[in-house]
Write a protein that binds this DNA or RNA. Structure first.
Lengths: 223, 223
DNA sequence: GCACTTTTCTGAACACGTTCAGCTTTGTAG
DNA sequence: CTACAAAGCTGAACGTGTTCAGAAAAGTGC
């Protein structure tokens, strides 16, 4: 037999992870049962809870997977674009693209994700790595843009505010019943258009303070 | 025996409703079990599902209760105030006051409420009556304000946008770990200050279009 | 090879919301 | 009062995620 380079436990853990993620994608959250996963792997029901604290912690793995796919999809596109708004469009759009396969069961996942005690809620310590990816993407999108005349203080506040807006867009997406999520895409389009119109106004002293207030208000959401 | 003015079923229904709401307030969503309610009333486990389609439908009753308390708390205060921003403060504040007793278990309720298939989610048909109360409150707050120089088109878009912002504020409140929800109160305060600063700008042609775009963007959320 | 420890796994048990076939009570028509 | 129908209620059964005492397997020191 081949000498195991990892412990047996680690191998089992990865098998459970793979089976769970596959089933989440295929059947959604509710229809993915701990027992079915164990059966499929020829293991007993208790084993998943030995390797993962809870079913939600398995969703956390999926969550991270999606965020990494988001980055992988957005990064190459960003390389060829310097306009701020278009860079943001790339990041938002790529994110929605990654979410799309899960829309049929999005409500189930949201419900599991939303409790403040759940490891899944975006503000929890457990999802910090996934959130870091998103924040990184928006930071990159902003910093890599050609000098756009946006004042520095505004520019510094932007990424975190954009992350919040992204979470809200995703929330809207979950509830969007329109074909191919056209309404979400339209909301994004209108939002970007609005932002494109507003940012140049930041140079007017009258509005700069107001805009900064608005952004730091949104920032307030993250501690 | 006293002749029942209502059917026996209706009486049982109300008893279940009362016991459930009491337990929700006392113990939260998770710790309120269908079995405990049935036991307390000396009934069998299946009976709640005869009178209410699901546990979530019982939460719906609580939901409506809270909205009605919201209106009852806000209405008399509105009578003595004509300034728009202050009227809004009354509505938001009274709403947070009503929610306060549930904060300890807010995550559980949110989790139950959030699935698009749940009768509890704010966009569902079942919660239309509760949402109507909230929309009515904000409409009243806006329409009852002294002429504030806010253009009519803006004014007309305001109530629904305010409802959306109220839902988002409530979402923030759920996750607010600060003592006495100070951060939520501060967010509200800052938001109102910002709105007070922005609304007068609506008279400038340059900004009026932008502001209208923003409001109708937010309106997009409800359909 | 043996004794011992640590890691990994087992599966019965628990409490939960929900279902539903059938039982009991209430209401109604003659 | 008697049949019959409708409304109300029962409680066992199901499938769920999670727990945990203890069995089995893997690892370790001598």
């Amino acid at each position: 037999m081949p000498k195991p380079r990892e412990t047996k436990g680690e191998r089992t853990r990865q098998r459970i992870r793979a089976a769970a993620l596959h089933s989440f994608r295929e059947n959604g959250y509710d229809a993915t049962t701990i027992r079915a996963i164990a059966d499929e792997l020829g293991l007993s029901v208790g084993v998943t809870n030995y390797h993962f604290a809870s079913k939600n912690h398995l969703v956390q793995e999926l969550y991270l997977d999606v965020q990494e796919a988001h980055r992988a999809a957005a990064d190459p596109q960003l390389a060829g674009e310097t306009r701020l708004i278009e860079r943001l469009r790339i990041v938002y759009s790529a994110g929605l693209d990654q979410l799309e396969p899960y829309h049929a069961h999005a409500g189930e996942f949201l419900s599991a994700a939303v409790s403040p005690r759940s490891p899944l809620n975006p503000l929890s310590a457990e999802s910090a790595p996934a959130m870091a990816i998103t924040l990184g993407l928006f930071t990159e999108a902003v910093e890599g843009a050609a000098a756009s005349g946006v004042p520095d203080d505004i520019r510094r506040l932007l990424p975190r505010a954009l992350v919040v807006s992204y979470l809200l867009l995703a929330l809207f997406w979950v509830y969007d019943p329109s074909d191919d999520r056209r309404r979400t895409r339209r909301l994004l389009d209108r939002g970007l258009k609005l932002l494109g119109g507003v940012l140049p106004l930041a140079r007017l002293p009258l509005l700069r303070g107001t805009l900064r207030d608005l952004l730091s208000l949104v920032d307030e959401v993250r501690t």
